[in-house]
């Protein structure tokens, strides 16, 4: 599936929820289901700065596509990174770099997009795209 198709799928899922509580419960569940990052990658180097909770991200290039794994010590943050990874993982660096992130707004998480927000969603997106830029250079 393309990034846009995955984003539309997520928008569909979130449209079923009536209030914040259902949305958050779903994110919490996504966080619980997130495939855990291998412990060897939970290093200080892989921590995303700008989050009140700890977020680790590891990226690997496989068949010209990037595979992301991540973890966080806070479950809501884990849910947010799980959504991002679902969108970005197994995509080409170019598609990740070009991806439009408006879907965050559509699934009712706009409040998390403020750069000063302590959960660092903006930092997470930036970091994932940075990996894509780095691998893109490698591919050229």
């Amino acid at each position: 599936m393309s990034i846009e198709e995955i984003q539309n799928e997520i928008i569909d899922e979130f449209s079923m929820f009536e209030d914040w509580e259902e949305r958050y419960q779903y994110m919490i569940d996504l966080g619980k289901d997130l495939p855990l990052i291998d412990d060897q990658y939970k290093t200080d180097n892989n921590i995303i700065k700008g989050c009140q909770s700890k977020v680790w991200v590891h990226a690997e290039l496989k068949d010209d596509k990037i595979e992301f794994t991540a973890d966080s010590d806070a479950i809501i943050t884990k849910g947010i990174i799980a959504i991002l990874i679902r969108v970005f993982s197994n995509q080409s660096p170019k598609d990740i770099i070009d991806a439009n992130m408006d879907f965050i707004d559509e699934i009712g998480l706009k409040e998390h997009l403020s750069p000063t927000r302590a959960n660092g969603l903006v930092s997470m997106i930036k970091q994932l795209k940075m990996y894509a830029i780095a691998y893109q250079t490698q591919l050229k």
Partner: peptide, 13 residues
């Protein structure tokens, strides 16, 4: 077993 950030986020809601 629960991160304080998670508790604060729900309380804010």
């Amino acid at each position: 077993g629960i991160h304080p950030y998670d508790v604060g986020t729900i309380l804010d809601k």
